[in-house]
Amino acid sequence: MSKSCIIFLLVFMTAFSAGAQKYITKTGHIKFYSDGQLEKIEAHNRQVNSVLDFSTGGFVFKVLMKSFEFEKALMQEHFNENYVESDKYPAATFVGKVTNIKDVNLLKDGMYDANVEGKMTMHGVTKDLTEKGTFEVKQGKIIGKAKFNIVVADYKITIPGNVGNNISKTIEITVDITLDKANM
């Protein structure tokens, strides 16, 4: 193969891989976990929307608060009515970027670090969020994972005094999403 041919191929492949490539899921999983003095509280949401624009690194999450499921019905009620006030603030969002998206090679299966920064909005409060996670490229899919803590008071979520000790002030969030290439 001539040199120019190879260069053309390389340019073509780069251009192709840099095109608008969106990876999406509508069934992402977010877990939150609080290790209080009296008991552990855990909730799962398996209806998480997320889109990753591979060409820019743009990364968005949309989470419906009422989709969080608790083991105890009472906790679920308190969570929705008293803490996150899901009637008033139905969704939490994250809008940001994977700053090192260029390091992720979609053509090579493997684990990659992902540095994510952006703004998270929950309970009507928007805060900057910078976290590290991982992307695993596997057979054309991207499996994103991250674990981080948030301070509930940062989002103006107040927990009444009598149960305050039972719920930890920070909540551990675990994100697990499998992004598929969007057919568009």
């Binding site: 509508k26 209806q47 949309k62 989470v63 419906l64 608060m65 009422k66 989709s67 139905p90 969704a91």
Partner: peptide, 14 residues
């Protein structure tokens, strides 16, 4: 089903 809301793309029932 139980309607948990609209996430700008879909209305979700569980």
């Amino acid at each position: 089903g139980y309607c948990t809301g609209y996430n700008e793309t879909d209305v979700v029932l569980e």
